[in-house]
Design a protein around this nucleic acid. Structure first.
Length: 635
RNA sequence: GCUCACGUAGCUCAGUCGGUAGAGCACCUCCUUGGUAAGGAGGAGGUCACUGGUUCGAUUCCAGUCGUGAGCACCA
């Protein structure tokens, strides 16, 4: 006798161990039909799984949180089956669920898959779905499984299985002629898969290692129903519209060209935006006790050899020569800041010493990594360094954390995630130093009341780091701020201070940035606001436009009056209809459009319209100035 | 760097089964002085990314280079 407890607390008895499907059927025919999978004591299983003992059982249907994962996983198998039907001899490798969908990596017999192959594969998938092939699960020992996949020519699959301990049993899923190694669970039959679409093809290295063969990956998306699928496709379209590369061109913010791959040309409007951010960040330096500095753009290579950068990054650095000396174009600012620290004799009484720079850095990033402003070769960091004692680390990290969160909030980002990146290989310094550095960061985060995720192996070669991650409009995750503890670099570059004991000591160095790269931050800002910046950031805050030539003089005066108060205001006196001007500046996402006709001229007023189309009526210039001032208090 | 795709006017794109190209917007000139998202007419504008090859002839076909895009790998 088996007792099953359902989520509502009710219990059912079965003479024989029932399958999930049988339990669903005992509850109702509708539920039996809707069942996609089940959960036994919280563990996700197939509907065909037999419940061997008393347990809490849940029937997973479309309404369950796990439904999408099961459907996407099963759709990946559907893709693999379709590919093998249409392209015999293609080997399957892995096909996991990812955000919004799935992918499957194949080792094709000949050419990799191309976008034009997708419609036929998708059609075959629909055909298999219509066949409603049942999925069956069977267990094999590891060695049996290896033999099975070797036997059908699936060497990649066999290799995966060989890396699993020999004493483990493995589950295989079969639908029609197709069998794949898989933990499961899966939908009962392929007929359950309806709302899916193949999205794109790509190359991907076997086991994620660039030394391995490149496989052919097919990405797809899958949803519970066509409505969700359509909503997803619409969401992608909307995200593309706010792509910063597209908006950068449309709004005349910046451009890139072939002669300068990965480097931006900032246009007047883009630079105005940049300056708003830079001036704001400059006030952050002042408020948190940093002295702003400026260091040379190229430095003798010997310095980079001492710092360890040459060993770790020489392939990603630019070099130049003159008079038999080799210089490196600076890929980061810290060695320069250490020179400033070293330029004077420092006392423990001076610590912590905080210096910051809008430091231009150039790195020879791999060509394939370049991506608009989000990954460039030439960029500007809001890079600060703190030279302090071990005892001071915690307070510095806590203060930085609070400052960083305030900055993100001011720019309109509330969704911030923290990561703690731990010791990588290779690295500088022994394990004791790393233990100390990692614990210092953990302690500070605890003190700040923050939550974080730890990332083993992801730290910088000289120290662990806290990373501040923000999500952009297209759902990509970008690291912005960082706080790093470094016990190595100051010693390597000979930084020291005189302690209370009158002996020389090596200071601890903290590396910190809030926006990270100005270029990347502006790219993210553009996407976040869709180019419709709040008034304090908008490159042009208002445009004054006359209706006829009769108000040109007044329009000029009104513009001048606002510019004199520090606002970014332009006049549009062209001989065009007012509707034309409004359309143009609305598309340029200017926050305020100020119309002046005879009435406004005679009253010394402007008629105010927002870029959203709202009519705020006519008001004296001084009133508008007051309004704009109240909205730009961050500036 | 790797795989695949792409590169035509300032922008967004069409086109040339091999005979040196076209639209809309923008730009210039003229008319129009019009009250809240495109007034009208005319004009100018391109070594079809670059370099080679095939060909009587290449923007079109082929190869290479550069750049861009999507992924992968990388990201101090």
């Amino acid at each position: 006798m088996i007792t099953i407890t359902l989520p509502d607390g009710s219990q059912r008895q079965f003479e024989q161990p029932p399958t999930i499907a049988a339990i669903a059927a005992s509850i109702g025919a509708g539920l039996a039909k809707a069942a996609l999978a089940g959960k036994i004591d919280g563990r996700l299983v197939d509907t065909s799984r037999v419940v061997e003992h008393d347990a809490a059982v849940e029937i997973v249907t479309e309404k369950s949180a796990e439904a999408l994962e099961v459907i996407r996983h099963s759709t990946a198998h559907l893709l693999a089956q379709a590919v093998q039907r249409l392209h015999p001899g293609t080997q399957v490798t892995i096909g996991p669920v990812i955000e919004d969908g799935f992918f499957y990596d194949f080792a094709p017999k000949g050419e990799p898959f191309k976008p034009e192959d997708l419609p036929a594969i998708e059609a075959e998938m629909r055909k298999i779905a219509q066949e409603a092939l049942p999925l069956s699960r069977q267990l094999k020992s590891r060695d049996e499984a290896v033999a099975f996949f070797r036997g059908i020519g699936e060497d990649y699959k066999a290799e995966i299985i060989e890396s699993i301990p020999a004493n483990e049993d493995l589950s295989l899923y079969t639908q029609g002629e197709f069998t794949d190694l898989c933990r499961g669970p899966h939908v009962p039959d392929t007929g359950r898969l309806k709302a899916f679409k193949l999205m794109k093809t790509a190359g991907a290295y076997w086991r994620g290692d660039s030394n391995n063969a490149m496989l052919s990956r097919i990405y797809g998306t899958a949803w519970l129903n066509d409505k969700d699928l359509k909503a997803y496709l619409t969401r992608i379209e909307e995200a593309e519209k706010r792509d910063h590369r597209k908006l950068g061109k449309q709004l005349d913010l910046f451009h890139m060209q072939e002669e300068a791959p990965g480097m931006a040309f900032w246009h007047p409007k883009g630079w105005a935006l940049w300056q708003q951010v830079e001036q704001y960040m400059r006030r952050v330096y002042v408020a948190s006790g940093y002295a702003e500095v400026r260091c040379p753009a190229i430095l003798d290579v010997s310095l980079w050899k001492k710092s360890g950068h040459w060993d770790n990054y020489k392939d990603n650095m630019f070099f130049t020569e003159s008079e038999k000396r080799t210089y490196a174009v600076k890929p980061m600012n810290c060695p320069g800041h250490i020179q400033i620290f070293k330029s004077d004799l420092r006392s423990y009484r001076d610590l912590p010493i905080r210096i910051g720079e809008f430091g231009g850095c150039t790195r020879n990033e791999p060509s394939g990594a370049l991506h608009g402003l989000l990954r460039v070769r030439s960029f500007t960091q809001d890079d600060g360094h703190v030279f302090c004692t071990e005892d001071q680390i915690e307070a510095e990290v806590v203060a930085f954390h609070e400052q960083a969160l305030k900055v993100y909030a001011d720019f309109g980002f509330e969704d911030v995630e923290l990561m703690l990146a731990l010791r990588p290989t290779p690295r500088l310094g022994d394990d004791a130093i790393w233990d100390k550095a990692e614990d210092a960061l953990r302690a500070a985060l605890r003190k700040a009341g923050a939550q974080w995720t730890e990332l083993p192996g992801e730290g910088a070669f000289y120290g662990p780091k806290i990373e501040y991650h923000l999500r952009d409009a297209i759902g990509r995750d970008w690291q912005l701020g960082t706080m790093q503890v470094d016990f190595s670099m100051p010693g390597r570059l000979g930084a020291e201070y005189v302690g209370e004991d009158s002996a020389r000591h090596t200071p601890v160095m903290l590396h910190r940035a809030i926006v990270g790269s100005m270029e990347r931050f502006l790219g993210i800002l553009i996407e976040h606001h869709s180019g419709a910046f709040p008034p304090w950031l908008a490159p042009v805050q208002a445009v004054v436009m006359n209706i006829t030539d009769a108000q040109a003089g007044f329009a000029r005066e009104a513009t001048q009056a606002l510019v004199a108060q520090g606002f970014r205001v332009e006049a549009d006196l062209r001989n065009e209809k007012i509707g034309y001007k409004i359309r143009e500046h609305t598309l340029a996402k200017v926050p305020y459009l100020l119309v002046v006709g005879d009435r406004e001229r005679d009253a010394g007023a402007v008629a105010v319209r927002t870029r959203a189309g709202e009519d705020l009526g006519s008001m004296p210039i001084a009133d508008f100035a007051q309004r704009l001032k109240s909205e730009t208090r961050l500036a």
